[in-house]
Simulated scan of single mutants.
Amino acid sequence: MTAGEPDGTYPDEPVTVSDRRRIDPETGEVRDAAGAGPGPAEAEPAADQREGQSADAEPEAEVDQVDARIAELTTDLQRERAQFANFRRRAAEEKQGSVAYGKQVLIEKLLPILDDLDRAREHGDLEDGPMRSMADKLVAALSGEGLTRFGEPGDVFDPDLHEAVQHDGEGAEPVIGAVYRTGYRLGEKVIRHAMVTVTDPVAAPSDAAEQTGAQ
């Protein structure tokens, strides 16, 4: 080894240089593909293809994420709409119940007045005059709100509607004898039972004749 030469070099060792250019710089001819390495033109399409695949995969992933988010938000919206619809329905039912309860309380306070009017009518005090007009208007107004009366002499006795204070008969199908207090319904709801006496039904004329003939 001579002075000035770098360590690890051997002057007698041959140096091999591989020229992988596809075009011979001396002759200008195209070399065989086996002897030349891939040129820049051949290497670039592979890189472009990988970049294109990566670029196509990213938008598809983003689209999937957007679709999943839209589906999630749609489900949340449908759930909120259903809850709001249920809330509105419950609020409407509670409002109707409050109105019906307030109406019932007011009408129950007016029932004693109707009882007084019934007694006055039985005594002939409502045959004419302004008192009759006032009574008719009050009854018409309450009837318009759904108030109906029940419990008349001769009606079939119903323990769900009538409160019996006296039993005068022993028959299997008792009827109302006398009415001490009229019963009232508000719509389909009974707000006061009728207070009545119970007796046997009146026999028909033919039945009475048969009984007299039998005796």
Rank of each mutant, 00 (worst) to 15 (best):
A55H: 01
S143I: 09
A140K: 04
K103M: 15
D67S: 04
L73K: 08
I113N: 07
T74I: 04
L147W: 01
E42P: 06
Q49P: 00
L138N: 03
T148H: 11
D76F: 05
D155P: 00
E42V: 10
D115Q: 15
E108V: 05
I113W: 02
I113A: 14
V105N: 14
P153N: 10
D116Y: 05
I107S: 05
P59Y: 08
L147R: 01
D155A: 11
A61I: 03
G39P: 00
E127R: 07
F84N: 04
L110M: 15
E93F: 08
D64M: 00
T27R: 01
L77N: 13
E80L: 09
A140R: 05
E152L: 11
A82M: 03
R79C: 12
A100Y: 04
E80C: 07
P130C: 05
H123I: 13
R79I: 10
D125N: 08
P40D: 09
S98G: 13
D116V: 07
A47I: 12
Q78A: 14
E60G: 02
A57P: 01
A46V: 08
I23T: 15
L142R: 01
L126N: 01
A34P: 02
V63A: 01
G146H: 02
Y101S: 15
D115T: 15
G35W: 03
E94H: 13
G52W: 01
R50L: 07
R81C: 00
P38M: 15
G144F: 07
P45Y: 10
G102L: 10
G37N: 06
S133L: 09
D48N: 07
D116E: 13
E42M: 13
R121L: 12
Q83E: 14
D48F: 03
A61H: 01
R149G: 01
D125I: 03
A47Q: 11
P45A: 05
V105P: 00
D128H: 08
T74W: 03
E44I: 06
P112D: 11
Q78M: 07
G146A: 04
V66E: 10
R149P: 02
A57C: 04
R79W: 04
K137P: 00
E108I: 07
D136M: 05
A34H: 08
F87H: 06
A34N: 05
F87R: 10
L111W: 02
D118E: 14
E145N: 13
L77H: 09
Q53D: 15
A36V: 07
V139P: 00
A47V: 11
P112E: 11
P25D: 14
E58G: 00
A71E: 10
G124N: 13
D125K: 05
R50W: 03
G35C: 09
I107N: 07
A41C: 13
L73I: 14
P40K: 04
R132K: 15
D48V: 08
E80K: 10
I113E: 03
D76P: 02
G37C: 08
R149K: 09
Q49D: 07
I113K: 07
D64N: 07
P59F: 00
Q65A: 15
A57I: 03
L126V: 01
D116L: 13
S143Y: 05
G151D: 00
T75H: 05
